[in-house]
Design a protein around this nucleic acid. Structure first.
Lengths: 193, 193
DNA sequence: GTCTATAGTGCGATAGAC
DNA sequence: GTCTATCGCACTATAGAC
């Protein structure tokens, strides 16, 4: 957070992410966005070239953060459980810094223009494929339970991807404690043995 | 599935759920919906009174299914782990029968009219509160790990609520096997002990 | 860099013929 | 029960003054 040092364009992106997250890309008009910034809709076009471009900028920026985070984790070649813990930390970290933008990514990626959408879908597929490989290696090495890797992947990703909703609603005084508990629940389960 | 015995109104609801789920309520026009049914937009209004009403009907119907399912489970007064397993089965069952409507509920509830939205939010709050009580009782009885119940609730609900995405994408030859694996992953975790 | 004014398009919904 | 025609409105985006 570079407090108060945002350019007008960054300010537009930040406010747009907040509004898009609250009501969805299609439900927010350029007039709504402008009003939130105390200017007229036409004035926005001195800083951005289209509504479309705002959405692409917000979403692809987040996509890149996940892509780079995953790359760093797989390059470290730690054991499987450590890599899963690092993935959980990666998600928590990105959610805490960009809860609104994560909401846009989750809910409005379908409304990206065709070019941006295809870039995002490629990023997401690559991300999921790396995640899948970690899980499969874990199963082979008997570190991960021998269930359908797709079901395991789906279950972990569901919680990680929707953490923004919960984090925005409840907040968290202690992000480290939240991370610790999510790691425990996802990896060890909720049932007492 | 009463094959081919749908009324025109039910046909509209079913098609609308499919399209809303694919692109979002605001991205689908009455002209789009009508075209999918091979009629003109104005003809829709002989069967429904507004676009708004279609969304309310789709979402509140699903909300009622969860409310009734939860009621049946808490009334049975089984032990905590059994109740959690029954909740997982409830979600899988509803997802399998109504994947599109679940997508509408998850993504478009914000676009309900004020009255329908307030009914849905009440249903959802009641549902979550019952779920929370089960978890808290489990912790007291040492059947559930002693972590923040909100984090446990969030983690379980995240997976259950987004199961429609994964189910629509991958399908499942064997719903019972899917249910068994989700129960194992959520309750026992993914890590080999 | 923001404004007013407006072009051009698509929206939900209604009226009335058949 | 479906159609054609249309109303009134909101939308994204541009032009041009200041």
């Amino acid at each position: 957070m570079l407090l108060d040092k945002l350019t007008r364009k960054q300010e537009i992106h930040q406010t747009a992410a907040k509004l898009f997250n609250e009501m969805g890309f299609n439900a927010i008009s350029m007039r709504d966005l402008a009003a939130e910034l105390d200017i007229k809709a036409s004035s926005l076009y001195n800083h951005i070239s289209s509504k479309d471009e705002i959405l692409s900028d917000i979403i692809l920026n987040i996509g890149s953060q996940f892509t780079e985070g995953m790359l760093a984790i797989v390059n470290q070649e730690e054991d499987v459980i450590t890599q899963l813990e690092q993935l959980i930390s990666l998600h928590v970290g990105i959610v805490v810094d960009n809860p609104d933008a994560i909401g846009c990514l989750n809910n409005d990626w379908k409304h990206l223009n065709p070019e941006s959408k295809s870039r995002l879908v490629k990023m997401r597929n690559d991300y999921e494929e790396q995640f899948r490989r970690i899980i499969k290696r874990g199963i082979v090495e008997s570190k991960i339970v021998n269930l359908n890797p797709e079901v395991i992947l789906f279950s972990l990703l569901s919680t990680l991807r929707s953490m923004n909703i919960w984090y925005s609603k409840k907040g968290s005084d202690d992000v480290n404690e939240l991370t610790r508990q999510v790691k425990s629940i996802l990896l060890e389960g909720v049932k007492v043995k």
